[in-house]
Design a binder for these strands. Structure first.
Lengths: 308, 308
DNA sequence: AATTGGTAATACCTTAAAGGTATCAAGCAG
DNA sequence: CTGCTTGATACCTTTAAGGTATTACCAATT
């Protein structure tokens, strides 16, 4: 049995006339007659009664007509869905995020992607940097969001943005009135740092900055993520240096003040990582959204810079 | 797209190796490679990633694998169901019955047919003789049960049994004690007859019998069917002649007594009728059951005749 | 670094089957 | 009885599926 034969059968059943059906199918009548005969032979069932005016369906033929329509429609659907899946418009994308990365940029990107590809089911996984890399290699995830990556041979990354540093400070502290804090002003002040976990990470960046500026760093706590660090600031444990994108988080009694007097490379990047040899259309589609987001981000910041 | 290609695709997806799949399909590797390429070209989707050890499904391929399995299973089902329909094991059979015909024989036949062909949905219609013939011609029904048919050019019939005549009589009537009533004993007695409707019918048979025997027939009521007639006997309206198969009906105060002194042709047949040019397997199957029923009926009656 | 074993891809040929043309046989309307 | 329409058959052409031989590629191993 053959899809062609099924198509032919449906045409004949609908036209109730082999010659007319042949015209509709843009073939001549004899091969159509033969295909129908073959179909009947194979099924060992008479599908049509031959009459003087044409043909008419037997009851078995009527049943087979229904089934045939189902089959053709299922095939059509399969083709369409497969093509959509091939364009990355359908399927499932497993994405890893890290603790505080969820604060603003990542939700924006995910929201854009969901709008552009509503057929794709996004599944989020909270994972540390090391876990993300392992999960990528095991193909449990397709993309991970992260900061401060060391290059790896099998993993590519795309930098999304570079956060400058800010200081989280209690609003009853003398420095809280300033619009810019110089690193030197934090000399020997109590500092909460994060995260715990695989190096290199944000702590290393902060340490390097202090070291290069010759400022003493007085670490009082090392906590798991930015949210916890800022909560400790709110609780009076001291200062906390954060990537500026974490400043969307509002906690009672906490103010965020830009940190000045730093070298240009004192930034922390947000990147997304993915397997170098993953050519799936879903990933490509996702990265396209990321790049679009990135370029709009640049335009926007240059605009606001021009206005200021 | 082609069912063959779908089968090939499933084999390759399952073996994750084109060469192995080719062996399983009893073809050589190159044409299989080509068929898969064609499928990919047609869908414009890469279904497999080619690796050193074989191939592996892309996510679009995974989706298409699911769809393919659905398609193949639907095709298989369609073939099987169509073949069963072709053997008359599946479908719908519209059967017409008449008022009192439902009393014993017809339910027996229907029961047998339902046991032998459980996949067939039997739909019953109550119809008079004339209605049945019209419905047959319009193909609203496939079989009708009836009595006393006049032959028609486009309709065939099969006689199922011939009922002898019996008399329904109130049990308080003097004749009710007899084991056989002679027609002459009904001379000028009040008689209820049935049915109303298209001739020839049961009334005509009864009238003819009276006439040929030279007995005066005193019709007091003409009612629609046997059940009503017997009910009137129960109500004291007189006698009622019935086909013996209607004697399974028990009503208070009514006895059935065989009618004697009649010619051999004083019987009323039960037949089923159908279109002469209906060659549907469902009808054939049904008629086969009818014939089987008939032959068993004959064996049974000859046995009981032998024993008596 | 070269080799070998196993993979899919390609080139070229053979064979099977689908399609086309011409014609026939059957049934119905005039 | 005669066209006219229908599906069926015979025979040829063309398309496409399948086979054989070979190549290109990758990875694991020596």
């Amino acid at each position: 049995m053959d899809i062609r034969q099924i198509r032919y059968f449906v045409a004949v059943a609908e036209e109730r006339n082999i010659g007319r059906a042949a015209k509709r199918l843009f073939i001549s009548q004899p091969p159509l007659t033969r295909q129908i005969q073959q179909l009947e032979d194979e099924l060992q069932v008479k599908l049509f009664e031959r009459t003087a005016k044409g043909v008419e369906l037997t009851s078995a033929g009527q049943l087979f007509l229904n089934e045939s329509r189902n089959i053709l429609s299922l095939i059509e659907q399969a083709q369409e869905r497969t093509q959509r899946a091939g364009k990355g418009q359908l399927g499932r994308l497993d994405v890893a995020i890290f603790g505080s990365g969820i604060l603003n940029t990542i939700p924006d990107i995910l929201k854009r992607f969901k709008t552009a590809y509503p057929g794709v089911n996004i599944v989020l996984h909270q994972m540390s940097k090391a876990e993300q890399i392992e999960a990528l290699r095991q193909k449990r995830i397709s993309v991970g969001f992260n900061r401060l990556l060391a290059p790896l041979p099998d993993i590519d990354s795309t930098m999304i943005l570079q956060d400058k540093l800010m200081v989280a400070v209690r609003d009853d502290h003398p420095l809280a009135t300033k619009s810019l804090i110089n690193l030197k002003e934090l000399d020997n002040e109590p500092i909460v740092v994060f995260p715990k976990g695989a190096r290199p990470n944000f702590v290393d960046l902060v340490s390097r900055v202090f070291q290069e500026a010759g400022v003493t760093m007085n670490i009082t706590q090392t906590v798991i993520d930015a949210v916890t660090g800022i909560a400790l600031v709110s609780g009076g444990f001291g200062f906390c240096l954060i990537p500026s994108s974490a400043s969307v988080l509002q906690l009672p009694g906490v103010k965020y003040i830009p940190l000045g007097g730093l070298p240009d490379n004192a930034t922390v990047d947000l990147s997304c990582i993915y397997l170098k040899d993953d050519h799936s259309p879903l990933l490509s589609a996702f990265l396209a959204v990321v790049h679009e987001y990135k370029s709009q981000l640049n335009h926007h910041t240059s605009f606001s810079a021009a206005r200021e």
